[in-house]
């Protein structure tokens, strides 16, 4: 407004970080329940955890870690003026998001076809702790999947702005913040993976 245009990068990034804190606390509620119910049903969490396929979880971990690498590099690329490289990296990130979701689809599909889903008859025959485990699993991975989709849309929006040169080597804070959001999606998964897929003993 009227001659006072100035971009406060630190302020913009700080605002984004504050938003990420709210995301952490949002997932925190689910992790809180996980901690409490794990303390109550240790054996049943293990028997339920063994039902999950570590290959799906591990594969998706690699996909997300790699996508995080792409986003991180893309910021450096943009600031060095390599716009095409930056766009390709961001496109690869979205491809990773798609792979992740396809993977997730097959994983959920397999579980559901075995009759394991919230409210199913098969689930209700299980031990109480196992029911809790699967209910938490569906809510946590579902909410995380939603964040993957939102994150991919945010990245796509950043790509659009980069194409139009509205985000460029001199003005990149939007890409930086989109990247921060994407890394958060990765961060949540870094905890989801061992807590749900690797709880074997």
């Amino acid at each position: 407004m009227s001659g006072h245009v100035h971009k406060d990068y630190t302020g913009a990034k700080f605002g984004m970080w504050l938003f990420l804190f709210t995301e952490v606390l949002l997932f925190g509620g689910l992790f809180l329940l996980y901690a409490v119910y794990l303390a109550r049903y240790p054996q049943e969490f293990i028997s339920a955890g063994k039902e999950l396929n570590v290959w799906f979880g591990g594969g998706n971990t690699l996909v997300l870690l790699t996508s995080s690498l792409f986003v991180a590099i893309s910021i450096t690329a943009l600031r060095r003026g390599a716009k095409t490289l930056c766009l390709r990296l961001l496109g690869s990130t979205i491809a990773c998001a798609v792979i992740f979701m396809v993977n997730k689809y097959f994983e959920w599909n397999a579980k559901i076809s075995h009759g394991i889903y919230p409210g199913s008859d098969h689930l209700k025959e299980m031990q109480p702790g196992e029911m809790v485990f699967f209910n938490l699993y569906y809510l946590t991975t579902g909410l995380h999947g939603l964040h993957v989709i939102i994150g991919a849309l945010v990245i796509a929006w950043a790509m659009f702005l980069i194409k139009k040169d509205q985000v460029n080597a001199d003005d990149w804070v939007i890409l930086e913040n989109a990247g921060l959001y994407w890394h958060l999606v990765d961060l949540i998964w870094i905890f989801v993976f061992p807590l749900y897929y690797l709880i074997l003993h």
Binding site: S68, V71, A72, H183, D186, I190, F191, P194, L195, L198
Partner: peptide, 16 residues
């Protein structure tokens, strides 16, 4: 598992 996850997230937060 939590310790390793914390280490990993520490790397992502600090560098990425």
């Amino acid at each position: 598992a939590l310790g390793i996850a914390t280490l990993k997230s520490g790397l992502v937060v600090a560098v990425f």
